[in-house]
Every structure is written in C-alpha cells, then in structure tokens.
Design a binder for these strands. Structure first.
Length: 270
DNA sequence: ACAAACGTTGTG
DNA sequence: CACAACGTTTGT
C-alpha cells in the first residue's frame, strides 16, 4: 500500500499542484534561449513515478483551505472539471445527493432508491459538506428545472464520483459525457480538460524544445510532447473510459453497480 | 489583451 | 495512426 509518489525529479516539488499554467514558466522566451540541461533523451528515459491519484481525490489540507476560502474566482464560474477537481467536487456530489433526497434532483430511477445508505457516502461527513457546498447550491444548483436535465446528467455521470474512480474517470466523464457541449450547448461546446499535474509529464518543468510541439509552438499551440499530461493524452472515450461512460450512459444509475462490480473485480483498484 | 494549451480537423 | 495547423477555451 505504498501509494507514495515517487518523485524522481528534484524540482518537481513545487509543481505538485495542477494548474493550467506551468509554475516554472518553461515556455518563456528566456527558456527557449537558454540551453536547458535536459536533452530529448533525458525526457524519454526518465523513469515514470507512480501517479498518485489519491492526491487528486483527496487534496491536501492546504488545497482544501485554499479552495474553501478563496474558491470564488472573480473572473468566471468554475468549469465542471474544476468542480470535480476541487475538494468541492465531492461537495458537489453531496449536494446532488441532498437534492435527490429532497426530491429536487430527478435522476434515472434507481439511483435515489439504491438503498438508504446511498451509493457513496464515503468521503467526509455530510454535515461539513452541507455548509461547504452551500455556495454551490446557489451558483450551480439554482433549482431551476431548466438546469436539471443538465444537473441530473452531471450527477449521474459523475456518479458522486469517488475514490474508486481515478482522476481520469472524473475528467473523462466531465470532459466528454458531461461537457457543456453535450449539455446545453450541443454545438461545439468542448470543454478543455486540465492537466492532472501529477503525472510524470506534468511534473516536467522544462520543454524539450526539440519535439515538434516545441519547435512548432507558434503554430501548433501544443505543449511539449514530453510534458503532455498522461491523462490528456488519453482521449475521452479511450480505453477504460469508454466502458465507464457507456455503462453510465446506457444504464444511468446502474453505473454505480458497474463501479461496484469493477471494484470487486479489482479493475479499479490501484 | 495576451499567452498557454486543449480539442478538432485536415492531410499524408 | 501520427502529425500539423487552426480554433477555441482558460487563466493572467
């Protein structure tokens, strides 16, 4: 049970947090000009530390604090991936559950009745969540019937997403099944997924400057190949993802059962 | 406004 | 399928 992240890259410590922006400004012109110490082969041959999915699901206290206290982004509402990524993602799930219990959130039959103990009461205590996701109730669950097809789908798709499902599950589901495109927009509503920040490539701090992406950054708009997040490499709909989504998509609430089965089968375990 | 980077599409 | 280019989203 040693899920410790084996960080082989010394400087990766300050990069544990996932952010769209790379902390160490590897993409700066200065970097381009400077002759970075790593060669292409270095990137390729670097061992792959285990991905600590748990850290995604259970953010550090510091992260939680940050999210709880200052989760209010002045600029725009958090995207769904944001929601799932943040500790509040769990709260969001709880919110949905409460909504269901209150009869406000109509999901496909089976979810709500899946037993009093509910499918996922795993994380945290509801009491804490109750207060915590309050803001989200206002912002994201305005109890508007118009939004419930959306919300229901999100909830169902997310299935109170839990530790059983990796970050990939979250992101994938949100990215594909639950993206605004499939939600309200329908037309070209593709939501960007975010780097996991945990995988080896994400931990890279420097661009190789040699790969096609680096060389062609101006026009390619792509991150260095060796920094491309492993999660993002997987297309939504890829292996593992598809099974989950399809299960959820086709059977709605049975998604939970599917997860349970997979869990028992060890498919989702480590 | 700008930069970074993901998603999509076209091409070989 | 891999790659390149573009469009778009997202964060500063």
């Amino acid at each position: 049970m040693s899920t410790a992240v084996d960080i082989t890259d010394p400087p990766s410590s300050d990069q544990a947090h996932s952010s769209t922006k790379i902390p160490n400004e590897p993409l700066r012109r200065s970097l381009k000009r400077s002759n970075h110490p790593y060669s292409l082969s270095h990137y390729i041959s670097t061992p792959s530390p285990a991905v600590d999915v748990k850290s995604l699901i259970q953010p550090s206290p510091a992260q939680q604090r940050a999210t709880q206290s200052g989760h209010t982004k002045p600029r725009r509402a958090p995207s769904w991936p944001d929601m799932w990524e943040s500790p509040s993602g769990l709260h969001l799930a709880h919110a949905a559950e409460l909504l269901m219990r209150a009869g406000l959130l109509a999901l496909t039959p089976g979810v709500g009745e899946g037993g009093g103990s509910g499918p996922e009461e795993e994380e945290e205590d509801s009491s804490a969540c109750g207060t915590d996701f309050q803001p989200f109730l206002g912002a994201w669950f305005p109890f508007s019937p118009a939004l419930f097809p959306l919300a229901g789908f999100q909830m169902g798709g997310g299935h109170w997403r839990s530790a059983a499902m990796g970050a990939e599950g979250i992101e994938g589901l949100v990215a594909e099944g639950c993206s605004p495109g499939s939600l309200g927009g329908g037309s070209g509503g593709r939501r960007k997924r975010k780097r996991c920040g945990e995988c080896v490539p994400c931990r890279r701090q420097t661009n190789c400057e040699q790969c096609s992406s680096c060389r062609n950054r101006k026009r390619g708009h792509q991150i260095c190949k060796y920094r491309k997040c492993e999660e993002l490499k997987r297309k939504p709909g890829g292996p593992g993802f598809e099974s989950r989504v399809s299960r959820f998509d086709l059977r709605g609430s049975d998604f939970t059962l599917g997860l349970a089965q997979e869990r028992s089968n060890g498919a989702l375990d480590g």
